[in-house]
Simulated scan of single mutants.
Amino acid sequence: MLLLVFVALQFYRPEKNTSQGNHASVFIAETNPPKSVKTILTETCYDCHSNNTAYPWYNNVAPFSYWLSDHVNEGKEHLNFSDWDNYSIKQIDHKLEELIEEVSKGEMPLNSYKWMHKSARLSQQQIDSIVSWAEQTRILYQLGKQPI
Rank of each mutant, 00 (worst) to 15 (best):
A62D: 05
D93W: 00
P63S: 07
L2S: 12
S123G: 04
D83G: 05
D83S: 07
D128W: 11
S88D: 01
A24K: 00
L110V: 00
E97V: 03
L9Y: 12
Q146S: 09
N59R: 12
E101M: 06
N60D: 15
K105W: 02
L122V: 09
S65D: 15
K90P: 02
L79F: 13
E77C: 00
Q125T: 14
M116A: 10
N51H: 14
F11Q: 06
T42P: 02
G106F: 13
E74A: 07
H117R: 11
K105S: 15
Y141M: 02
K95T: 06
T53V: 00
N52I: 09
H23E: 08
I100K: 04
S19E: 03
A54D: 15
A62E: 06
F27V: 02
H71A: 09
S36C: 04
S25I: 04
D70W: 13
Q10D: 01
H117G: 00
S69H: 15
Y58H: 08
D128N: 15
K118R: 11
L4M: 09
V103C: 09
L79D: 03
I92Y: 05
F81K: 00
A29V: 06
S123V: 09
S82Q: 08
Q142K: 10
L96P: 10
D93H: 01
V61P: 03
V7E: 02
D47Q: 03
V37E: 12
Q124S: 14
E102M: 05
M116V: 12
V26I: 13
I28Y: 13
L110S: 12
R138L: 05
Y113G: 01
H117P: 06
E102W: 09
N51D: 12
S19C: 14
L68F: 13
L79S: 02
M116Q: 10
L2H: 14
W57H: 01
L122D: 05
L4K: 11
W84E: 08
A29S: 11
F81I: 00
S36D: 14
D128V: 02
M108D: 09
N80V: 04
N86P: 03
N60R: 14
F6P: 04
I40G: 04
E135G: 00
L122R: 14
